[in-house]
């Protein structure tokens, strides 16, 4: 278990960065695990019929993967007490190559009195930020 000394932290400090490969397999797996079987997440013909360029990742998969950077840092998934994002850009998942999502976490705010830290997450796909205001409040 990671033990983090809150006094040693600074706003702006990078706490971690992870590269996630999202493949069509990842999307089917997430569909099954979450119960979200919208075909725009696994059928090219369907995605194109509703005007999309192709199959895209579930926003909730991007959100769920991104927070792992904060989870890995604190070492305990149960310590993320508040987590929100805006879905600003789609992540298209190529049938052959998948999509690479690069997530970086930084300290956004330190609340030493309550032993809590806000981690700001930046999720990038194809040089574009895909989540807005992705913030996880973590209890240390």
């Amino acid at each position: 278990m990671t033990h983090i000394n809150i006094a040693s932290l600074e706003v702006g400090q990078v706490i971690g960065s992870t590269e996630f490969l999202l493949t069509r397999d990842s999307l089917v797996r997430y569909a099954g695990a979450s119960g979200d079987f919208n075909p725009i997440h696994y059928r090219d013909d369907f995605a194109q019929s509703v005007g999309l360029d192709g199959v895209l990742a579930h926003g909730m998969l991007t959100m769920g993967a991104a927070v792992q950077v904060a989870v890995d840092w604190v070492g305990d998934a149960g310590k993320v007490i508040d987590y929100g994002v805006r879905f600003t850009k789609p992540v298209f998942v190529d049938a052959t190559d998948g999509a690479v999502l690069i997530v970086t976490g930084k300290i956004g705010e330190i609340d030493a009195e309550n032993g809590e830290v806000r981690v700001d997450l930046t999720a990038v796909f194809n040089d574009t930020v895909v989540l807005g205001k992705a913030q996880a409040r973590v209890r240390l």
């Binding site: 996630f20 990842s26 797996r29 997430y30 099954g32 695990a33 979450s34 998969l61 769920g64 993967a65 927070v67 792992q68 989870v71 890995d72 070492g75 305990d76 998934a77 149960g78």
Partner: peptide, 17 residues
């Protein structure tokens, strides 16, 4: 097992999950 399945799906490797 549902938690494990969901954790794998969101790429978690956290032992607590």
């Amino acid at each position: 097992e549902k938690i494990r399945e969901f954790a794998h799906a969101v790429k978690s490797t956290n032992p607590i999950n």
